[in-house]
């Protein structure tokens, strides 16, 4: 299970069943690959409800769980843990491209 850091703000995440892509639950209970569309729970009660909703919508995803996030002044959210940052934003190095014969 995901490591979860403490934090007041949470979003619900999972991997999409058909392709494994990282998704977040939005306010309309749809799974989206955009973190900025994720529904944010702002207290413990809301977080519980959010997780319940995520589980109710889990037919098309695998193992929903809560991710602790922070929010900056402009309302941009970002996961707290490095693991979840990487899940949300992708690899931290450049993978080699299919047609490339040199890494750089």
């Amino acid at each position: 299970m995901a490591k979860n850091l403490r934090g007041d703000l949470q979003v619900a995440s999972a991997n999409r069943l058909v392709d494994g892509m990282v998704v977040f639950l939005d306010a309309a209970a749809q799974w989206t690959d955009r973190l900025d569309r994720a529904d944010v729970a702002r207290d413990e009660k809301a977080a519980e409800r959010l997780l319940e909703r995520a589980r109710a919508e889990s037919a098309t995803v695998v193992d929903p769980f809560l991710v602790a996030v922070t929010e900056d002044g402009a309302g941009r959210i970002e996961p707290l843990s490095l693991r979840e940052k990487i899940r949300a934003a992708g690899l931290t190095f450049a993978a080699i491209a299919a047609e490339s014969v040199r890494y750089a």
Binding site: F93, A95, I96, E99, S100, V101, Y103
Partner: peptide, 17 residues
Amino acid sequence: KPAGAPPGDASAAQMEG
């Protein structure tokens, strides 16, 4: 393991090469 590359990774073009 060329300098700075992810160890063990190869692109499709490299595999063909």
